[in-house]
Nucleic acid binder design. Structure first.
Lengths: 363, 363
DNA sequence: TTGAAAGCGCTAACAA
DNA sequence: TTGTTAGCGCTTTCAA
């Protein structure tokens, strides 16, 4: 249905469908029929650019004009076409957010925060899923670059060097998150997976644990946590340190895998008294399996998770886990992009948000 | 940094920054500096429109031209500007997906499926969060309509009638999901919350339960499930049917609320032998609380969840719950929008995907 | 099958 | 403070 502008004769629209009298010029074409800035300007009795200023930089326009334009917008129900605006201004106000998958609790907090924070600043989030396995990363990249976003937030990995190079070449501001790499593409908000593994090992050692093991996802970051955990465990002289069972499950991790993980582990290495899991869901699985076998936590078995999911504090026993401040990461990342768009260059492009071990009952 | 086109003299670019000799015409402006279709066309020795056809409708050009254009794309690393394309063609290949929040497991599956399915068809997902509480729905709507998406998928609620009206007026295809309303804005893929409440009551009645209660979120849909559960319970003569404890927690629901819910319930109504929870997370909380009180499930207390989260089958005991096919909903919704964009009109705009009660150990 | 012209709806640049 | 002009990069329309 065509839009309805209350009391204004659309007589002077150059290509208004009404003037079928004149022969159509070669190459001319009809508009989609929506209300445009031009309609608003006409109704307000100003030039289009003035209407544009009234909407985008109200301070640059007289109060009188501002009022007239706002009235016209109100009456017509005009909604600016951001595609056109983006094309003309070379600012899309769109930010691409890439996660391996939106399923699973891991990246929820960051996606939520980014969407909310950016929306408050007038940006929209375009969601991309890279998948954990090798997939068409190049197709995703093409789709992203094609939209000319004002920023890209990468959570999880951009695997191919080719993809990283193209992203860099595109000139789009990039924020990598969830890791600390020495050579980021552009900006970085993350934390050290190695440090986490090390600190958890020390924590368990200080708690007097002797035989440690891990139940971990097989994605690269999980593996790095696990490797450094194993290394530090060995260095501290914890038994089977060099022999820590790497129990690789596919990402994203599940409770069921945690149950199975503990079962397998106990079969191979009955003396285990501490387990570091690569997610809280795995940890919950370990706890349930232990419970069903009559193994007492933490007396006989200490369990440490990763992620500090919202439910972890309410488990029985409460889960000791590693907390990552996803909200903080999201806010920093958003700030990076908003600042860059505003022409503000920050001195430090790498932020380490760290982590904390939340000490509860399970370890 | 300016883009680098290997061996092609950019002599004839109208506004090339190089020709600073001529005085700048009034109103002329510099391009963003990226590689455009025009550059590709020039390199391939064809007109821009021909290059455009080679990329969008390869069958409409000769194999020779196709090859030349593809070579040129390859050499330049050209990525089409979808903002410009969208403006010209009035097709944005963007779909807005609105959920109350991306936090919490409820809408993950549908967001995941939509993102993936639509990406495969060449569409990108723009994410919007409406929030559970009354919020700036109009601002969100403005942001959505401003992008001129080829479709909007609404999950959860569009509360204000004003918002619904504007969406309708915008002419954008709309798919509402997660509910069955008699008068959808446009298209609808959902299920009946009332039926779920009723069927769960019957299920528990058939299982010989006598005193039922609910632990439920306070969002509108949860309440509808709970209300019809209460009604049917009463009709079937289950004790306290008319007196079912409505235990309203704020959405999204949490495990902790489930624990507290059971605790409160037992205080008020000790004889309860069955509980219907409005989410699996609440159900898990109820189970943990029961466990910590030595209440045996299902012998003393039957528990039914909602959502069939991935972990529910691995709990101890396995959770009986209501399954909603989020993937199916996502696929149908995507299909609706893709078809509409292709001009295919479906006869039936309302799809009821139903639900199923997954019978496991807890009830 | 290819191309010339025009224009999608908006804003940058310049001028008054 | 307001307006004129041109053009963002692409695709539609029409013609050859």
């Amino acid at each position: 249905m065509p839009p309805h502008i209350p009391p204004t004769p659309p007589e002077s629209r150059a290509d208004s469908p009404e003037d079928g009298a004149e022969p159509r010029r070669r190459g001319s074409r009809k508009s989609a029929g929506g209300i445009t800035l031009r309609d608003v300007a006409q109704l307000a009795g100003v030039a289009p650019i003035t209407a544009s200023r009234a909407l985008n930089t109200p301070s640059a326009v007289s109060p009188k004009v501002l009022q007239k334009v706002r009235d016209a917008v109100e009456r017509t129900g005009y909604v600016p076409n951001l595609l056109a605006g983006g094309l003309a201004s070379n600012k899309s106000r769109l930010v691409a957010v890439v996660v391996p998958t939106v399923i699973g609790p891991v990246f929820q907090e960051i996606v939520h925060t980014l969407t909310e924070t950016l929306a408050a600043a007038g940006y929209q989030v375009m969601l991309g899923q890279s998948g954990y396995e090798n997939s068409r990363e190049d197709a995703l990249l093409e789709a992203i670059i094609g939209r000319r976003p004002d920023g890209v937030v990468l959570t999880g990995i951009m695997r191919s060097a080719e993809a990283r190079k193209r992203l860099l070449a595109s000139g789009i501001p990039v924020v990598e998150t969830w890791d600390l790499t020495p050579t980021p593409i552009d900006m970085l908000v993350g934390f050290s997976h190695e440090n986490i593994g090390r600190e958890v090992a020390r924590y368990l050692h200080a708690a007097g644990r002797k035989v440690v093991a891990v139940v971990g996802g097989r994605d690269e970051r999980s593996r790095r946590r696990m490797d450094s955990f194993a290394q530090e465990s060995a260095a501290l002289g914890m038994a089977a340190g060099a022999d820590v069972a790497m129990h690789h499950v596919t990402a994203p991790t599940t409770l069921g895998q945690g149950r199975k993980g503990l079962a397998d582990l106990l079969e191979r290495q009955p003396g285990i008294d501490a387990i570091f899991c690569s997610s809280d869901l795995l940890a919950l699985g370990v706890m349930i399996e232990a419970q069903s076998r009559g193994i007492r936590i933490p007396e006989q078995l200490a369990v440490v998770g990763f992620g500090d999911l919202e439910f972890s504090r309410d488990l029985q026993p409460q889960l000791t886990t590693v907390r990552i401040d996803g909200t903080g990461i999201g806010q920093r990342a958003a700030r990076f992009i908003i600042d860059r768009a505003a022409g503000i260059e920050v001195a430090e492009r790498i932020v380490d948000v760290g982590f904390s071990i939340i000490r509860r009952e399970s370890a």
